[in-house]
């Protein structure tokens, strides 16, 4: 049910939300023409969180020619918020690591709404190491509000698990592709997001903090989340302007949830393209490119001692 008309996009999106019986409507729908680019950053955050938005599990079914799910971190448990396994598209084999929010209430509880525990990050790392040993590239799909803020997670070293993943992903000798398919929630996203190709879907977002969290701290009121979402420059377009993502992966008009098969087929094309591009880069060069790319990120000014 792809929608061509700009005006009806928001209405359909809104209908999707009320059908699912959740949260607030995407936005007020004014009468007349509403071009897509009039979506506010906070509207995009809501689209990224849309309950009908395709999840990692949908892309597994819609996009892969084969998948064998592999479980467990070999240390503590099997975190269902992170799906890992051998994946194949056409003749390309890779390790898929994808964050998973769950499709219904029961699943969402099991997946902890996509908020990983340390064992989720360690599971991801254990599978990445396996991929490295087998010479397989890694594809990660990012979709998390953030790492789980919880007593158990702290007891088992949430910060350490994320830091270790970042370090090991910087050293992994096989190519890594990371794509934000929904929410790219701060450290929880980066924990599986260090890579050679970083891209984001059109209505996904990626942020250092949730707009609500930011609003609570800086505006002293979570109600200011829309302002915070604008200030944080967290949309795909913003990230592209900041030079932090490779490119934006287009979605069906109005959002991926309106046409999951089409979203999956677009995503597939991009993944195949990235895997193809990365497959030709020698190992040493790959690592030095990956490291230098991160070493370059930052905006600061530095005056010379001579005042030049």
């Amino acid at each position: 049910m792809e929608v061509q008309d700009n005006n009806s996009i928001l209405q359909v999106a809104q209908r999707g939300l009320s059908n699912a019986g959740v949260i607030a409507p995407v936005t007020e729908v004014p009468s007349g023409e509403v071009p897509v680019n009039s979506l506010s950053p906070y509207d995009i955050v809501k689209l990224a969180r849309h309950p009908l938005r395709p999840l990692t599990s949908d892309y597994v079914t819609l996009m892969l020619d084969d998948f064998i799910e592999l479980h467990g971190d070999r240390l503590f448990g099997d975190d269902r918020s992170t799906i890992t396994g051998f994946a194949r598209i056409e003749n390309r084999r890779f390790m898929l690591i994808g964050q998973q929010k769950g499709k219904n209430t029961k699943e969402r509880l099991l997946c902890n709404f996509g908020m990983s525990n340390p064992e989720g990050y360690r599971k991801a790392l254990q599978k990445m190491k396996l991929a490295e040993r087998l010479g397989l590239p890694v594809v990660t799909l990012i979709d998390t509000p953030g790492a789980n803020p919880d007593i158990g997670a702290e007891e088992r070293g949430q910060a350490y698990a994320i830091a270790e993943n970042i370090l090991q992903m910087l050293r992994l000798t096989t190519p890594i592709v990371s794509i934000v398919i929904g929410e790219g929630g701060s450290g929880g996203a980066l924990g599986i997001g260090v890579c050679d190709k970083f891209s984001i879907m059109e209505y996904a977002y990626c942020s250092v903090i949730s707009p609500e969290g930011c609003a609570a701290i800086l505006w002293k009121d979570a109600e200011n989340a829309p302002e915070a979402a604008s200030a944080l420059k967290l949309t795909a377009k913003d990230l592209l302007e900041q030079g932090l993502v490779e490119e934006i992966i287009p979605e069906p008009k109005g959002g991926a949830h309106l046409n999951p098969p089409k979203s999956a087929s677009t995503l597939k094309t991009f993944i195949l393209k990235y895997l193809e591009e990365l497959s030709t880069i020698p190992k040493d060069h790959l690592l030095s490119l990956r490291n230098s790319r991160y070493m370059k990120i930052g905006c600061y000014k530095e005056e010379n001692f001579n005042g030049e």
């Binding site: 830091a163 370090l167 910087l170 450290g187 260090v194 990626c206 250092v208 903090i209 701290i217």
Partner: peptide, 27 residues
């Protein structure tokens, strides 16, 4: 404060950057 909100994703990426520098040092 962790990663600084006011510099958005540039701050988040400092996590990877500092880790890259530490990784090189250790190696």
């Amino acid at each position: 404060g962790g990663a600084r909100m006011h510099e958005g994703m540039f701050s988040l990426m400092q996590m990877a950057k500092t880790s890259a520098a530490i990784s090189r040092l250790k190696e």
